[in-house]
Amino acid sequence: MFWWQTQAGDGLMVAFTNTTAGNLALHVGDHPGQVLLRRAALEKRMQVPAGSLRFMNQVHSADVATVDTADGLGPGSPSAVPTADALVSADGSSPLAVMVADCVPVLLAGRGPGGVVTAAAHAGRRGLLDGVLANTVATMRSAGATGLRAWIGPAVCGACYEVPEAMLADAKARLPVLASRTRWDTPALDLPAGAEAELTALDVQVIRLPGCTLESDDLYSHRRSSAAGRFAGVIWRR
């Protein structure tokens, strides 16, 4: 079920699922009941309360939502799934999830007044360039987080993410480290490198995991198949 996982201290767990966990997204044409069963199985594997794992309606924005178990939002509440591309738990009480299938999943943690502040961010091309990671870090720090760490999960790599020349030129002008070339020597973007550079510039310690979604059959890739499901990055406290 987990492609990678680690214990990060203070009871903190960080993990990324693979295709054996199944599609975890409700927006890709899968049967909703089956998706919810898979999410329940993931929560059981994480050893967190049923219905406590917080997802978001990801729209390639730079918006950040703050969620906590104390906010009174049950899993069936219409407000329980905010429209945003990053979630922050100011006291680390809420298990957080980010879903991807080529975009960059980023999980973050820092020491806070309540012990730990956690976050999960969806950094696609648009969100990365518009500042979703900077906004996430700012929200965490406004909650008192210090000593921030980030785990960059598997995404489409810079040798596979082919883009039009104009898109490369625009991205390069805004974040030069994004510029790349495919293995077949066409314009490309290196989103994981861009995420790492952004976080490093924000004084965040970065752990960047290897793995390309397009090249790995055990990870979902929208570029490999437009019908692909979504795997998840998850961060939680036991």
Rank of each mutant, 00 (worst) to 15 (best):
F2L: 10
W3D: 11
W3Y: 13
W4M: 12
T6C: 15
D10M: 12
G11Q: 02
M13C: 09
V14K: 02
V14F: 03
N18M: 08
T19M: 11
G22P: 14
L24W: 08
H27D: 14
D30E: 15
D30T: 10
H31T: 15
H31W: 11
L36P: 09
R38Q: 15
L42P: 10
L42I: 14
K44C: 09
Q47M: 10
V48C: 00
P49N: 06
P49L: 09
S52T: 04
S52D: 00
F55A: 07
H60Y: 11
S61G: 14
V64H: 11
T66V: 09
V67Q: 00
D71W: 07
G74C: 04
G74F: 04
G76C: 08
S77I: 15
P78T: 12
A84G: 15
A84P: 12
A84S: 15
A84E: 06
D85G: 04
V88E: 01
S89H: 10
G92M: 05
L96T: 00
L96K: 04
A97L: 05
A101V: 03
V106D: 05
G112V: 13
P113R: 08
G114L: 08
V116E: 01
V117S: 01
V117D: 00
T118R: 03
A119S: 13
A120H: 02
A121D: 03
H122L: 04
R125C: 01
L128H: 09
G131A: 12
V137Q: 03
V137A: 08
A138T: 07
M140Q: 11
R141G: 00
A145G: 01
T146I: 13
G147Q: 14
A150Y: 06
I152M: 08
G153C: 05
A155N: 02
G158M: 07
G158A: 09
A159N: 14
A159T: 14
Y161N: 06
P164H: 03
P164A: 14
E165G: 01
A166Q: 15
A171S: 13
A171Y: 09
A173Q: 14
R174T: 13
V177D: 02
A179G: 02
A179E: 05
R183S: 10
R183H: 15
W184K: 11
T186E: 05
A188H: 01
P192S: 04
P192N: 07
A195C: 15
A195D: 06
E196M: 12
T200V: 14
V204H: 11
V206S: 06
I207G: 00
L209T: 06
P210F: 10
T213K: 11
S216I: 02
D218A: 15
Y220S: 06
S221Y: 00
S221R: 05
R223Q: 13
R223H: 11
R224C: 04
S225W: 08
A228P: 01
G229W: 05
R230D: 10
A232I: 02
I235N: 00
R238G: 02
R238S: 03
